[in-house]
Design a protein around this nucleic acid. Structure first.
Lengths: 161, 161
DNA sequence: GGGAAGTGTCTTGATGTCGAGATATCGGCC
DNA sequence: GGCCGATATCTCGACATCAAGACACTTCCC
């Protein structure tokens, strides 16, 4: 089986045969898979009426467990965006009624963002759709290979944590 | 060895123990690795005075081989951006003298974008730096594992091509 | 207690990308 | 030969993000 990266590597080998292209075989595939995955996510979510960035925020709140509250600061660390972006996102999510902003009783500088019942329903539905879409992409991969792939990826990712 | 995704999966399992989270183990790692990789790329390139989007365009031209010419349409398909974005990118690259725009002798609607000598030098240097940075990230992975990882990723990516 | 440094959130201006539409040219068909 | 849909590129307005700075409050230490 041949993929886009085989073509890419072949072209580079033709032009720069002096270089060791082994890293490209791994990282180029990771980048491209991430891009395709973003599109698949988008599709899975639009069926549920939410967008990817909305899911990122709602899912962080959902994972936190009851009472589904996190500070904006915590949210931006979880989702890797800047504070200005998070303000904008929370504004829009609150406008749609999926979250609400509460004063932090412990710190008067602070705010808590809380998932509403609508928000919880939205994120739960979207997550199930996402898992289903992702399971499709893995359908042809034997369990054994999937486990090993996860394990190899973990060993690449761990140094970043 | 434990990574960020182990924490993520643990949180989801606590909240949604009813779902099969196996896909998350694979795809969440791919997304996160892609993000970290983008940052590593950025660092490697800034040392060479170019930005990631510039590399994407220049590398496509470089891979095409002599005379290092591609149409804007071909470039936008290779780099997965829209036509408006590509116009803007070629404008800026031409402004820096890394590419030049020529009329397509075969089609008067068309344009060819050609790598200049400066552009070729820039992309070659940047590519070597990128390979070196990526090789570092793979340093702890035995050759055998790297090969197998590439192969497993290929089987996921191939259906998209 | 009071001052200074630190922390948390929001505001603002700049920028890169997208998406839709405009213009020019090509290629096939009657 | 001339028309019409398809193609190639560029233009323009909208928008999400980032980065830096403003402001309010807290925490630590003298």
């Amino acid at each position: 089986m041949r993929d886009e990266v085989d073509d890419l590597v072949e072209a580079w080998r033709r032009e720069r045969g002096d270089l060791d292209l082994a890293p490209v075989e791994v990282f180029s595939r990771i980048s491209r898979l991430a891009r395709h995955l973003d599109l698949a996510r988008r599709d899975a979510f639009t069926a549920h009426g939410i967008e990817s960035w909305e899911f990122d925020v709602l899912a962080a709140l959902r994972r936190a467990g009851q009472p589904y509250e996190l500070s904006p600061g915590r949210l931006l660390r979880e989702t890797l965006v800047t504070s200005g972006t998070m303000t904008n996102r929370v504004d829009r999510l609150a406008g749609r009624g999926l979250v609400e902003r509460l004063p932090d009783p412990r710190d008067r500088r602070g705010v808590l963002v809380r998932l509403t019942a609508d928000g919880k329903a939205a994120v739960d539905g979207a997550f199930e759709a996402l898992l289903a879409a992702e399971a499709d992409l893995l359908a042809d991969l034997p369990d054994r290979d999937r486990t090993q792939l996860a394990s190899l990826l973990r060993s690449l990712l761990a140094p970043f944590s």
